[in-house]
């Protein structure tokens, strides 16, 4: 019971944070919807664990909580992958900028005299 309450409260907290971020245009609509949907799902599972169990059994998993855990792992793996690709792109962009600056300002030996 306590755990469910904590979970719901945390989910509500996460949703209000996200919507504030969205209103400040810090995150895209896509992320706002995805994130909100996710936490709404968490609330749903917390409030109606039996429904979650039913859904879980429908897809062939014993318990709702287990299903939630599996999905969470998959989602996290996906997010890490995205971050990883982004990071790589960022690194390459930095190199491009650094290179531009370098070739625009060569220091030649004769300029020292």
């Amino acid at each position: 019971m306590t755990f469910q309450v904590i979970l719901v409260l945390f989910a509500l907290f996460a949703i209000t944070r996200t919507s504030r971020q969205y209103r400040k245009r810090k995150v895209s609509l896509y992320w706002f919807l995805l994130w909100t949907g996710l936490w709404a799902l968490v609330i749903g599972i917390a409030l109606y664990p039996t429904t979650a169990d039913a859904i879980a059994r429908f897809v062939g998993v014993e318990r709702g909580a287990d299903l939630a855990l599996y999905l969470a792992v998959v989602l996290l793996a996906y997010l890490v992958f995205r971050l990883f690709v982004r990071q790589e792109e960022t690194e390459r962009s930095i190199t491009q900028v650094v290179r531009q600056i370098a070739v625009q300002h060569p220091s030649k030996p004769d300029e020292t005299h």
Partner: peptide
């Protein structure tokens, strides 16, 4: 390097 006669390009961040 420049004193030794090279053209030197500088990366402002180590790449």
């Amino acid at each position: 390097a420049r004193a030794a006669g090279a053209i030197v390009l500088r990366h402002v961040i180590n790449r």
